[in-house]
Computed example of a mutant assay.
Amino acid sequence: MSDVMKKEDKSLPTFRPATDILEREDGFYIYMDLPGVHKDALVIDLQENDLTVSGKTSYPAPENERYSEMQFGNGEYRRSVSLSDIVDRERIRANLNDGVLELYLPRVEKTQPKRIEITSG
């Protein structure tokens, strides 16, 4: 990433999205509120045991208009979650709908005992 991009990122206010994490029998479900974040501005990275979600909002200022007050605007959401070894990293799914990101983190399938067949020589 270039230094210019890093500097631009630093100028945006960063928010930690409201997040719910549910544990169910089949795995974990994470819901994050990301209002104004479009799919193409959303990045989900998995590095070792850290799952990081980041997304940017962009509200271009209308031409020849000036805000007298602005309570939302350009910004960035960022949240990291540490994963345990019981999460199957290969089957994680993500869905963005109406400003809510849903992540499904399935459990690793339990290994079943295996009987070793004995052959006579």
Score class of each variant (00 low, 15 high):
20 D>V: 04
21 I>T: 04
22 L>A: 09
23 E>H: 05
23 E>R: 13
25 E>P: 02
25 E>N: 08
26 D>M: 08
26 D>S: 02
27 G>Y: 04
28 F>Q: 08
28 F>A: 06
29 Y>T: 03
29 Y>K: 13
30 I>T: 00
30 I>M: 08
32 M>R: 12
32 M>E: 05
34 L>A: 04
35 P>K: 06
35 P>S: 08
36 G>E: 04
37 V>Q: 04
39 K>D: 02
39 K>W: 05
39 K>G: 00
40 D>S: 03
40 D>N: 14
40 D>Y: 09
41 A>H: 12
41 A>V: 00
42 L>E: 05
43 V>N: 14
44 I>D: 06
45 D>S: 15
45 D>N: 11
46 L>N: 07
46 L>K: 15
46 L>C: 02
47 Q>D: 10
48 E>R: 15
49 N>D: 15
51 L>G: 03
51 L>P: 07
51 L>R: 14
52 T>R: 15
54 S>W: 10
54 S>N: 10
55 G>P: 03
56 K>G: 11
56 K>Y: 14
57 T>C: 13
57 T>Q: 09
58 S>Q: 13
58 S>R: 15
58 S>W: 12
58 S>M: 11
59 Y>T: 12
60 P>T: 03
62 P>R: 15
63 E>M: 10
63 E>Q: 11
64 N>Y: 08
64 N>D: 06
65 E>D: 03
67 Y>W: 13
67 Y>Q: 10
68 S>A: 07
69 E>T: 08
70 M>F: 04
71 Q>S: 11
71 Q>H: 12
72 F>L: 14
72 F>C: 07
72 F>G: 08
72 F>H: 14
73 G>M: 04
74 N>E: 00
74 N>R: 09
75 G>D: 07
79 R>S: 07
79 R>L: 13
79 R>T: 05
80 S>D: 03
81 V>E: 13
83 L>S: 02
84 S>W: 05
84 S>T: 13
84 S>F: 01
85 D>R: 15
86 I>N: 12
